[in-house]
Amino acid sequence: MAILSLVEVENLTCERAGRRVFRNLNFAVASGQVMTLEGANGAGKSSALRIIAGLLPQASGDVRLKMAAGYAVSDGDERARLTGWMGHTDGVKAQLTVEENALFFAALYGARINVAGVLDHVGLKRIAGIPSQYLSAGQRRRLGLARLILSNRPLWLLDEPLSSLDAAGRRLAAELIGEHCDDGGIAIVATHETLGLDAARFFLGPQ
């Protein structure tokens, strides 16, 4: 995993469909830190995450990822290569089994991690052989967590990671985020709920 020292968002402005969602967003998250992104529905939490990931172009402003090696990355395509992503949707193929999905993620990211071990860790080992269409929303979320681990990226951008998860699943998600940050990673989490982690909080207010 490449090590990031800082994620810096400067004067970030987002427009969607001609409407300004937020403007002049400024924050910085350092290596080892978790930041929660909070705000009302429509405040632009998901849009902010998509911009940081490089999936959505910003109207103005900068997103810089400073690497521990000394250089900084600001290009969207390069940010995409450093991002572990969990969006509203889990990117799980319903027709493939849990294991086939996980093996695909591992091959896609070139992960040198034991896939069966990761599935065991997120509590899906027992149902690794069943088609993903039979998974509950929470189980799909767990498969999304497995993908995050397999992606082995320094910056985690998570959009409502706790949704649909049961109490054990929530603890698991918080634990994984904690471990990730202990390893020098960074996590930015859009959520309405408390993670149970020592996290900086950022509020996206209405404009």
Binding site: L55, G87, H88, D90, G91, A94, L108, Y109, S151
Partner: peptide, 14 residues
């Protein structure tokens, strides 16, 4: 629709 395209867009594969 299932979010795989986001995953692909963020993967090492361009």
């Amino acid at each position: 629709e299932d979010g795989s395209l986001d995953v692909l867009a963020l993967s090492p594969l361009n």
